[in-house]
């Protein structure tokens, strides 16, 4: 019986624990301080984020205005599928985009098997890891992140965070509230595997490609800088 097992396990665990009270435990935890984060590859948080997205096998478009976003989405889909269709979550940020200006015909809702492209609106981005962050909810079906061949993500650079600790601070209102979000997704790349002979292949089960469209106060020069940093790391002696 599970309840008997619970009692037995709890008794053994209690016996092996220090038996401190909650206040002492919490005080001790606070004393440990904050974990060190990874060093950012650039002083500019946005450039650092871009570098990490590219390292994670992602691709990037810079689209400062909403019209630039829809054009970037339209060009991306046309380039890969000669199509104008995609599925987008019900996020109000996406609903408010001037889709006609980009020649895109979005369907809002859940992706159906066989639909190749989905667009999501990321709540945050984390520069430390190059991850885009999503909370599950009616605006963001989980399967839209997992089932398409190409996963497109729109992220406002105002929502960029330096590290994972900042992310938990941002999450605090949501996860201490009455009903916590069912899921938090940190997506940092297309689905990949190295399970056969340790060779990396993208498109294991989920998206084969992960494309991040940065909007807001972002400039093409920042992406150029990120690309320069990566190419100089690859060819440190090159001219």
């Amino acid at each position: 019986m599970s309840s008997e097992s619970r009692s037995r396990i709890m008794a053994r665990v209690r016996h092996a624990s220090l038996g401190q009270n909650a206040a002492a435990i919490e005080a001790q935890l606070d004393d440990f301080g904050v974990a060190p984060a990874a060093e950012l590859p650039h002083d500019d948080t946005c450039v650092a984020f871009m570098i990490n997205v590219l390292r994670n096998q992602g691709s990037i478009d810079v689209a400062p205005q909403r019209v630039d976003v829809v054009k970037a989405v339209g060009q991306y889909i046309y380039r890969h599928y000669r199509s104008h269709r995609l599925v987008a979550g019900n996020d109000p940020h996406l609903a408010a985009m001037p889709w006609r200006d980009g020649g895109v015909l979005p369907r809002f809702g859940e992706i159906e098997p066989g639909e190749p492209v989905a667009l999501s609106y990321a709540q945050w981005g984390v520069a430390e890891t190059g991850a885009t962050i999503f909370l599950s909810g009616r605006n963001n079906p989980a399967r839209n992140n997992l089932l398409p061949e190409h996963h497109l993500v729109v992220l406002d650079v105002n929502q960029l965070l330096p590290d994972l600790e900042s992310l938990w601070q941002q999450l605090e209102p949501a996860i201490t509230g009455a009903e916590r979000p069912r899921a938090l997704f940190c997506i940092a790349g297309p689905s990949s595997t190295a399970d056969i002979e340790a060779q990396l292949v993208c498109g294991a089960h989920g998206p084969r490609a992960w494309h991040v469209i940065l909007t807001g106060e972002v400039r093409q020069e920042q992406l150029d800088t990120a690309l320069d940093v990566l190419s100089s790391k690859k060819n440190p002696g090159g001219s």
Partner: peptide, 8 residues
């Protein structure tokens, strides 16, 4: 630096 999917 981070796996493709870290979910909670």
């Amino acid at each position: 630096p981070q796996t493709c999917y870290t979910s909670f």
